[in-house]
Simulated assay, not measured.
Amino acid sequence: MPQPHIRTARPEDGEELGALDRAAWSTLHEVTPEPQPPYRPFFGDRYPVHGCLVAELDGRIAGYVRLAQPTPFPASAHVRQIQGIAVAREARGHGVGRALVRAAIDSAREQGARRITLRVLGHNTPARGLYTAEGFEVEGVLPEEFLIGGTYVDDVLMGRPL
């Protein structure tokens, strides 16, 4: 399989990214209920187009990553946070997630950030392994922060310098 091509999202990607996001929904990485119609737009005030990077394989969208400043305060302007990542089921295992994480790191650097952070559910072993392999370290754990499907799940805070 070819290497994924990473690019900045375009407004016209919203419908396809929304469909990918809904198809990728899982209690492995989501704390919100499974989306039901009518669906919210993929892009909006909280998640603008310019904060999203898209992975393409063979000209088709295979995944995305959202990158943003974690708070609106000037005191945290030097930090970027991965605020969502998804890979299409058929593209998993082909380096798309790794390419997206690396692109997010590069983008954060280009934006002048000194750190990049993320939050991941404690039971999401595949994602935690990817993040660790890309230099992220556990910086904190909120034990049993979420109740998902009758099970308490930790919220793991990870980060790395740039």
Score class of each variant (00 low, 15 high):
60 R>H: 13
29 H>M: 06
161 P>N: 07
143 P>H: 12
156 V>F: 02
145 E>F: 08
91 A>H: 07
146 F>Q: 02
83 Q>C: 13
40 R>L: 14
118 L>N: 00
22 R>M: 08
87 V>G: 03
33 P>N: 04
97 G>Y: 06
37 P>Q: 10
48 P>S: 11
20 L>T: 01
91 A>W: 03
140 G>E: 02
25 W>A: 04
150 G>W: 08
94 H>K: 14
86 A>W: 00
90 E>P: 04
51 G>T: 07
11 P>A: 06
50 H>R: 15
118 L>T: 02
146 F>P: 02
75 A>K: 13
61 I>R: 12
80 R>F: 02
47 Y>F: 09
27 T>Y: 04
18 G>E: 10
18 G>A: 13
113 A>Y: 10
116 I>T: 05
160 R>P: 00
48 P>Q: 02
20 L>H: 02
34 E>V: 03
125 T>W: 04
123 H>W: 13
33 P>L: 09
130 L>C: 07
95 G>V: 12
31 V>F: 06
31 V>S: 11
113 A>I: 06
52 C>D: 01
76 S>W: 04
25 W>V: 08
83 Q>M: 15
151 T>A: 13
54 V>E: 12
85 I>G: 00
18 G>F: 09
15 E>N: 06
70 P>T: 07
42 F>L: 03
43 F>V: 12
47 Y>Q: 12
78 H>I: 01
117 T>G: 03
58 D>R: 12
149 G>I: 05
74 P>C: 04
34 E>M: 10
119 R>D: 03
106 D>K: 15
145 E>L: 07
123 H>C: 09
56 E>I: 12
120 V>F: 05
152 Y>Q: 08
46 R>D: 14
27 T>D: 12
12 E>Q: 14
29 H>P: 02
86 A>G: 01
9 A>P: 03
77 A>K: 11
21 D>K: 07
84 G>S: 09
109 R>M: 03
104 A>P: 06
34 E>Q: 15
154 D>R: 09
150 G>P: 12
74 P>N: 06
2 P>L: 05
63 G>T: 02
64 Y>H: 11
33 P>H: 02
4 P>E: 09
92 R>C: 06
70 P>W: 05
14 G>Y: 10
28 L>R: 14
86 A>N: 00
62 A>R: 14
133 A>V: 03
154 D>L: 05
110 E>S: 15
147 L>T: 02
138 V>G: 05
31 V>D: 10
41 P>C: 03
27 T>I: 15
83 Q>N: 06
128 R>V: 03
96 V>P: 01
70 P>H: 04
74 P>H: 15
153 V>L: 01
28 L>H: 06
85 I>N: 00
53 L>T: 07
39 Y>R: 08
117 T>K: 06
85 I>D: 00
52 C>L: 13
116 I>H: 07
51 G>Q: 13
90 E>S: 13
78 H>S: 04
60 R>Q: 12
77 A>R: 15
39 Y>A: 13
96 V>S: 02
27 T>P: 13
10 R>K: 14
44 G>A: 04
128 R>I: 05
13 D>L: 05
85 I>A: 01
65 V>A: 00
85 I>S: 00
12 E>H: 11
139 E>L: 07
109 R>C: 03
51 G>H: 14
